[in-house]
Simulated scan of single mutants.
Amino acid sequence: MRRAAAVVVAGGMALVGVGLTAPTAHAAESDISFSNVVLNNGKPIVVGISAEVEAPLTYTVKSNVSLDTWWVEAYRGTYGTDEYTLANTTTQWSCRQSSAGGYTYRDCDETMTIDPDSMPGGNGNNLVNGDAAVWKTVGTGIKKNGGYDHDQLSATVRLQRASRIQSANATPEPVAKGGTITVTGTVQRANWSKHRYDNYGGRSVKLQFKPTGSSTYTTVKSVTASGTGHLKTTVTASQDGTWRWRYSGNTTTGAANSSGDHVDVN
């Protein structure tokens, strides 16, 4: 089942396909309620500059009236006034239904699709850097008699700008045992407002090493990127293996690993 997408028009939300305009925000009615809302398994949603990102969404709808459709969405702004929503579409894969005490319970599993180039209203139809923040949630139930209910929820989700580490390079290759290896790279993160990746200066980044034959990287040292995002450090060559950079992210920016660069030690 595909729910009607919520979009923002002229500063308010229109419910496409059901012909309702946005009401003034109000408390949930007793005949419909939403609970157990979890977005992206409780983890931040990390988005780059072009690729769509899918995030799981689970929740429970409780009602003692017949419903035509229902959904949960993440939004920013003031609900009922100038909100805009995160996902273009939410595909409802399944809802498991049960009954108890005169209520119907629907435990739903969905997938939100976030497209940084095509937001449903708000900031010029695309993500902007200020959207890297905590988003609130709201549940909507459409009754079969034509009424509807909006339930502002306590669940939130953090949206983050993707990061990446470019040009990771360990030299020389090969190197004599006991010699010096120089490792370089550049930290970048998504600039949603400009639709590009920009160098991300001043970040603390871990240099990691994986010996040949191992599947595990271990941290060798932490290095602070220059003001222009460039990384450079030296280590002593002791054994064959692969070097990479690891950035752990922050509240607005997702984590990233560079590609690995293998060095033979003679």
Score class of each variant (00 low, 15 high):
241 G>W: 03
123 N>A: 11
194 K>G: 04
8 V>D: 12
120 P>R: 11
104 T>D: 01
41 N>C: 02
38 V>R: 09
254 G>P: 04
84 Y>I: 08
131 D>V: 07
233 T>S: 10
47 V>T: 07
47 V>R: 08
176 A>Y: 08
170 A>S: 14
9 V>C: 04
131 D>C: 10
53 V>F: 01
94 S>T: 12
86 L>Q: 11
105 Y>D: 00
156 T>I: 07
221 K>M: 06
196 R>F: 04
95 C>T: 12
55 A>M: 10
240 D>N: 14
22 A>S: 12
151 D>C: 02
203 R>I: 05
122 G>H: 06
252 T>N: 13
129 N>Y: 12
197 Y>L: 06
233 T>G: 02
246 R>L: 10
32 I>C: 02
249 G>A: 01
243 W>C: 02
185 G>H: 10
69 T>H: 13
253 T>G: 05
235 V>M: 07
14 A>S: 11
244 R>M: 04
68 D>Y: 09
96 R>H: 12
53 V>Q: 14
100 A>L: 11
104 T>N: 07
252 T>M: 07
92 Q>A: 07
66 S>A: 14
24 T>M: 09
133 A>N: 10
155 A>Q: 06
17 G>E: 12
131 D>F: 09
225 A>Y: 00
16 V>F: 07
68 D>H: 10
87 A>E: 04
180 T>H: 13
158 R>G: 08
178 G>Y: 12
232 K>R: 15
91 T>D: 14
173 E>R: 15
117 D>H: 10
216 T>W: 00
10 A>Y: 11
112 M>Y: 12
186 T>H: 05
28 A>F: 00
109 D>I: 13
149 D>S: 14
75 Y>V: 01
25 A>T: 10
81 T>M: 05
90 T>Y: 06
70 W>D: 07
59 Y>A: 05
27 A>L: 05
181 I>A: 06
98 S>M: 00
83 E>N: 11
36 N>I: 03
91 T>G: 13
21 T>R: 15
4 A>C: 12
164 R>C: 00
3 R>K: 13
247 Y>H: 01
197 Y>S: 09
33 S>F: 07
37 V>S: 00
78 T>P: 05
234 T>G: 08
226 S>N: 09
